[in-house]
């Protein structure tokens, strides 16, 4: 590598040879070994400008900006699917609850009818029981009397 080429690279890419184009680094290292003093001068000039440029530090990312960017990222399809399933389950649950309520209503109304119908035989039984009691009372008394 010629001194001119070394200087051109230092001017373009700065004083850190590690940041130079990969294809040039080996030849640059050979030049530095061959002409260390000249290489040091050229690199020193470039390093001084590098240091000055590095004194301009960019502003840090604010929390608000970070969160705003994250909020606009794509949502997980899995999460969306879970939400869909959850919504579905909720809907099914509500429908099931409605259906259960309806069935309960039907069952209760059936039971009421049955009870109403069932009161007739009960009253009939009660009537006959009352009759039996009356006659039974007489029967019992007479029976006891008979035993005595």
């Amino acid at each position: 590598m010629t001194p001119e080429r070394f200087e051109t690279l230092a001017e373009a890419h700065g004083g850190a040879v590690a940041r130079w184009p990969v294809a040039e680094r080996e030849a640059a290292a050979a030049f530095m070994t061959a002409q260390p003093e000249l290489a040091r001068q050229m690199l020193g000039r470039a390093e001084a400008l590098d240091a000055l440029l590095d004194s301009w530090r960019p502003a840090v990312v604010s929390h608000a900006l970070m969160e705003s960017v994250i909020a606009q990222a794509p949502r997980a399809p899995v999460r969306a699917a879970v939400a869909w399933i959850w919504r579905g389950a909720l809907g099914t649950g509500l429908a099931a609850a409605c259906a259960a309520g309806l069935m309960m209503g039907v069952a209760l109304s059936g039971a009421t009818t049955t009870t109403a119908e069932a009161t007739e035989p009960v009253s009939a039984a009660m009537t006959s029981y009352e009759g039996l009691t009356d006659t039974g009372g007489a029967f019992t008394t007479s029976a006891l009397e008979g035993q005595a």
């Binding site: 900006l65 970070m66 990222a73 794509p74 949502r75 997980a76 399809p77 899995v78 999460r79």
Partner: peptide, 21 residues
Amino acid sequence: VAAGDAAAVRALTARKLPRML
């Protein structure tokens, strides 16, 4: 990120947003 991985979104934001800014 394309698969909607929230941790990847955070990691890529932390890596690239400061560079873009």
